[in-house]
């Protein structure tokens, strides 16, 4: 797959702190997982790409603009029903209420939550809430889905279900860009690994090669420390 996003000397340094330092990187894969220790700047990188933050230096050059959606570590849901949450995301872009509802229901169905559509979203379990957030993103039919540690606080069963949905979204044609601390998850979902450490881009490697033989000493050290 050809490069769809090129980052050039991307720098993010609010105040005295330096979070990302001259990160240059080409993203080409359909499913990319960004790995790195805590505080490496993974989340910041995602937010810069999604446009939630503005870089202090450098630039992003898109091959062509992609429609995006983002799912956060902690699902942020409105005090309405599960369906209401999915509809809310759609309504901002799609004025036709009936169409919104149909697409929202379809997305909930694909996330396996149609039976909870009328349930107050904030009272769902953590895993269900994250699936509602995924359905909300999915309903937008994004060309690029960005996920920031989407399973960080979920139990194994919920994690499996979330991974299943991410795979399905990828299969429906969306590019996936995500971070995780779960190396097994990275192995299962990624085609390509981007490893960053201390605000620096360290390496970009196909997933099989990364786990077999990472190129950098930092990545080797990281893999040794992390529980697989």
């Amino acid at each position: 797959m050809s490069t769809w996003l090129q980052l050039e000397r991307l720098r993010f340094a609010p105040g005295e702190r330096r979070i990302l330092d001259d990160v240059s990187l080409a993203l080409a894969a359909g499913r990319t997982v960004i790995l790195g220790p805590n505080g490496a700047g993974k989340s910041t990188l995602l937010r810069l790409i999604h446009g939630l933050l503005r870089p202090h230096g450098g630039w992003l050059s898109w091959r062509r603009p992609l429609s995006q959606a983002m799912v956060f570590q902690k699902p942020v849901l409105l005090r309405t029903t599960a369906l209401g949450n999915v509809i809310y995301g759609l309504k901002l872009k799609q004025p036709d209420a009936a169409k919104c509802r149909r697409r929202a229901e379809a997305a909930l169905d694909r996330a396996g939550l149609l039976h909870l559509a009328a349930h107050p979203a904030r009272l769902l379990s953590g895993g269900e809430q994250q699936r509602v957030a995924l359905a909300r993103a999915w309903a937008l039919e994004p060309e690029l889905l960005i996920l920031d540690e989407p399973t960080a606080s979920l139990d194994p069963a919920s994690t499996r279900e979330v991974e299943r949905i991410i795979k399905d979204i990828a299969d429906s044609g969306a590019r996936i860009l995500m971070t995780t601390h779960n190396l097994g998850q990275a192995r299962r979902l990624a085609e390509e690994i981007v490893f960053i450490d201390d605000g620096q881009m360290i390496e970009r490697t196909a997933v099989a090669d990364f786990f077999k033989a990472p190129q950098s000493a930092a990545a080797k050290h990281f893999l040794k420390e992390e529980i697989p």
């Binding site: 029903t81 369906l83 209401g84 509802r101 559509a117 349930h119």
Partner: peptide
């Protein structure tokens, strides 16, 4: 059921 949900907010 879903109709009910949304109409509740309404």
């Amino acid at each position: 059921m879903m109709t009910k949900a949304s109409s509740l907010t309404q």
